[in-house]
């Protein structure tokens, strides 16, 4: 493979990794607090539609990215009300939420976003000096700001989860909520906060798809990237650094798949086989990482002891 092809794959791979990375970081926070959020797919979709609407309204890329955060948090509030306060079944609720999100965004698309007009994506910024390193420079250091920010976010999430009091409370709520409650942690509140923050990031992840890849919204544009983010969290063993690597791995697998399609030897194989790669990789990943230890209380609604009496 030529160096140019390698650079293309790496650079595209990193670009494709960004949405999944944001969503996976958000989901990490949520799962650490003890909630399993399948709704991340729907939140991404809503984030993507939001970004497209904001851009269409004439605001800039930065504004679009910024608006997707509170919109994601709003979705998080809806989900938190259902998962945490109403204690609904998290898997079923998540799937149904995604159905609603698909309906909502497709409706919005038909009403406001149809007719792909101004296709454009956020510009890339080359980091001075670093971008001149061969191969690595053009792939890693000539990316959109949303990529640099996502890596910074991974560091922040790491610090927040493992270096703050809030993080300690978050982990305890996901591991042993009863112990957390007796230590004076408000488990319900912590899980709400995690869902607000986590889904804000998922919303931004969705926005990245529109802002850095497609330039426009299409129905069901996420195409399972939210679910892939869920898999990346497990594959990354709930560690931000591994999650970055996992997301980039999926991005590169995806880019590789695009690249392969254009190579002569790939012509003998059906296009769908290459398209299937990321999904097959996800299945392999969740099967291989079955030994990854989830936070002990994940997926189980918590009834505070103080509310039993």
């Amino acid at each position: 493979m030529s160096q140019a092809a390698l650079v293309t794959i790496l650079s595209t791979g990193v670009l494709l990794a960004v949405p999944v990375l944001w969503a996976a970081l958000g989901e990490l926070i949520v799962e650490k607090s003890g909630t399993l959020n399948l709704g991340v797919e729907g939140v991404m979709l809503i984030g993507a539609a939001t970004a497209a609407l904001v851009v269409k309204a004439g605001a800039g890329f930065a504004a679009a990215a910024l608006v997707s955060l509170p919109v994601g948090a709003l979705c998080g509030a809806v989900l938190a009300y259902l998962y945490v306060s109403r204690r609904t079944d998290q898997i079923v609720t998540g799937i149904l939420f995604n159905l609603v999100a698909l309906g909502l965004t497709t409706t919005l698309f038909a009403r406001y976003l149809n007719g792909v007009g101004e296709v454009s994506t956020a510009p890339r910024y080359a980091v001075p000096l670093l971008s001149r390193i061969p191969v690595v420079g053009p792939s890693l250091f000539t990316q959109t700001p949303l990529f640099y920010l996502s890596v910074a976010a991974a560091v922040l999430v790491l610090l927040a989860v493992h270096g703050t009091w809030f993080g300690l409370g978050l982990l305890s709520a996901g591991e042993q909520p009863r112990a957390a409650e007796t230590a004076g942690i408000d488990v319900i509140r912590v899980r709400w906060k995690a869902l607000l923050a986590g889904n804000a990031l998922a919303g931004l992840g969705g926005a990245c798809i529109v802002l850095t890849q497609s330039g426009a919204f299409l129905p069901n544009i996420t195409n399972g990237q939210g679910y892939i983010a869920l898999a990346v969290v497990v594959l990354g063993r709930f560690k931000p650094a591994y999650i970055v690597l996992g997301a980039v791995f999926f991005g590169i697998a995806n880019a590789f798949q695009f690249q392969l399609q254009s190579l002569p030897f790939a012509q003998g194989y059906p296009r769908q086989l290459w398209l299937a790669l990321p999904y097959i990789a996800t299945i392999v990943a969740v099967t291989l990482s079955r030994s990854a230890r989830y936070p002990a209380a994940v997926g189980r609604p918590y009834v505070p002891a103080t509310r039993r009496g």
């Binding site: 409370g169 982990l171 112990a179």
Partner: peptide
Amino acid sequence: HQHFMLVPDFTVAENVALGGERRHRLGL
């Protein structure tokens, strides 16, 4: 409690400090 209210994967120090966050604000 009779059944201990500890987070198994936390260290002794973390378990002891859990919930006492007012002491040092944000940073652990």
